[in-house]
Design a protein around this nucleic acid. Structure first.
Length: 294
DNA sequence: TCTAGGGGACGTCAGGACCG
DNA sequence: CGGTCCTGACGTCCCCTAGA
């Protein structure tokens, strides 16, 4: 079946998902973490987030040249400020890359999973089941969206491209398209649904509402409906509109998620390098400070 | 060559978050 | 408070690859 045929199939084949199935999904969802999706199998090069590495790399540059480092972490939510003394004697205050401004998307669900397992093992009563469901509900509470997290990261580290909020449509310009300057502009999927912009200096982020036919809603105002048939048509139209919106939203959400994961991976890489350099520096200082044996 | 399995992408549903 | 947005989870399809 071709991609187009498959899409057609997906459109016409409405899956019957029962409530029971959904509830079981909820239970299983606790054990599912983003980390599972952020494996090394993630396709590379679709959307690059080079600015993070570049910015943090700049910080690494200071770190590498430093002779003495005095670090201080102001606590959770505040990035560590590091005093770096350059070889020239000049002291520079650097906002370190080691910071925990946000609850980790990758780690927290796993921790919560352990908590759920512990509760389930130690409590059997019906009352505990109620408590369990409450706790599970708390655990399932939504964390901040990828857009928010990434934007907060962007504000912490200048130079990281922000994910733009949707803008109102304006005539004459492509609506709801935010542009970001990135070195590589490959933005496509294996299905080719997104056009590759290989020779363009920017890639485009389409807001979920971009491709929506606004006129669909405008065309059928409730006042103009009379017969049950018209009501049914209106209901169908609304449903299709909602599905179309959600389709676009899901695509956008997946794109943001990928970008976010890439951002985290870049960060991990930078932190690993920095950690290695700090260890080397520590060894050097140990050698200098230790009394000579011979 | 065939097949099983892994992985990516997609559409859909459900429900929490957010906003006017 | 209702409408909309966002995202986790699921099922499905397609592609690729290793092994028989």
């Amino acid at each position: 079946m071709s991609k187009c045929g498959r899409k057609k199939y997906m459109r016409t084949n409405v899956r019957q998902m029962t409530t029971e199935t959904v509830e079981s999904q909820q239970d299983r969802s606790v054990t599912h973490s983003v980390a599972e999706h952020s494996s090394a199998h993630m396709q590379t090069g679709q959307i690059s987030v080079p600015t993070l590495a570049q910015v943090l790399g700049t910080e690494l540059g200071y770190s590498a040249r430093s002779v003495s480092v005095a670090g201080s972490d102001t606590g959770r939510g505040s990035p560590a400020v590091t005093l770096v003394q350059l070889p020239s004697g000049q002291t520079v205050q650097v906002q370190g890359v080691i910071q925990t401004p946000h609850p980790s998307v990758i780690q927290s669900p796993q921790i919560q999973t352990v908590q759920v397992a512990t509760i389930a093992e130690t409590d059997d009563s019906a009352e505990s089941e109620v408590i369990d469901s409450h706790k599970r509900r708390e655990i399932l509470s939504r964390r901040p969206s990828y857009r928010k997290i990434l934007n907060e990261l962007s504000s912490d580290v200048p130079g990281i491209p922000k994910i733009e909020e949707e803008k109102s449509e304006e005539e004459g310009t492509p609506p709801n398209i935010a542009t970001m300057a990135v070195p590589t502009s490959i933005y496509q999927t294996s299905t080719g649904q997104y056009t590759a912009t290989g020779d363009m200096p920017t890639y485009q982020i389409r807001a979920p509402t971009t491709a929506l036919p606004q006129g669909v809603v405008m065309a059928a105002s409730p006042g103009s409906l009379h017969s049950p048939q018209q009501l049914a048509e209106e209901a169908t139209r609304k449903r299709e509109l909602r599905l179309m919106k959600n389709r676009e939203a899901a695509k956008e959400c997946r794109r943001r998620k990928k970008e976010y994961v890439k951002c985290l991976e870049s960060r991990v890489a930078v932190l690993e390098v920095q950690n290695k350099k700090l260890i080397e520096e520590l060894e050097t200082l140990k050698d200098i400070c230790s009394p000579k044996t011979d």
